[in-house]
Amino acid sequence: MPAAQAPNRRTENFGAPAEKTYGYVQAIMHGDTIYISGQLAQDGADLVAPAPLDEHGKVTDYENMGDQMQQAYRNAETLLGRFGASLANVVEEVLYVLDIDAAFRVAGPVRKAAYGREDPQVASTLVGTPRLAFPAQLVEIKMIARV
């Protein structure tokens, strides 16, 4: 039986299978802070702009990085909206990427468009990692927002 949710906490999910199998929530609001789990380029059960893979399941091209970033920001915006917030409330983000160079080529324009300004007012960290949850996934973005 799940524990009762604390009165000063609220959670949100998308209904993705991993939420149940892995055991996590997409977002949790505790007090005036919203913690967004790492968002990927999912639209329902589908990965948007999956990276091409070779016969061994290794990424062969990182050109879809921008499209995946855009979808991850859209997903975060959806979650934040459920709490009456938006990307304007984000104070910190961490972008986990498979290829730093590919990320640097697209992150500036994608982030500026997502936040709606040339100088997004958010602390940001870009981290290269050898693998993410799904083989064709290129990026995952986690956030903390304050309301």
Rank of each mutant, 00 (worst) to 15 (best):
D99N: 15
A72R: 04
D32K: 12
L95I: 15
R117G: 13
V106P: 00
E63V: 11
Y96F: 14
V97H: 09
S37G: 11
Q39H: 00
A85G: 02
E92L: 10
V25M: 09
A76Y: 06
A76Q: 01
M29Y: 08
D61G: 07
Q121R: 08
I34Y: 01
Y96P: 06
V122T: 06
D46G: 04
L80Y: 03
F83V: 09
P120D: 03
T78R: 12
Q68W: 05
N75P: 05
A72F: 09
V110Y: 00
I28F: 00
V59S: 04
R111Q: 12
N64D: 11
D101F: 05
E118N: 10
Q39G: 06
I34P: 04
A76R: 02
E63I: 10
M69Y: 05
A45C: 02
I100C: 04
H56M: 09
A114Y: 02
M29P: 03
D101K: 12
G108F: 03
G84V: 12
R82F: 03
A103V: 07
A102E: 05
G116D: 06
S37V: 07
F104H: 14
Y35C: 11
A51W: 04
Q121S: 10
V122H: 03
S37F: 05
R105E: 15
M29D: 07
H56R: 14
D119Y: 02
T60N: 08
A41L: 10
A49L: 06
A113Y: 01
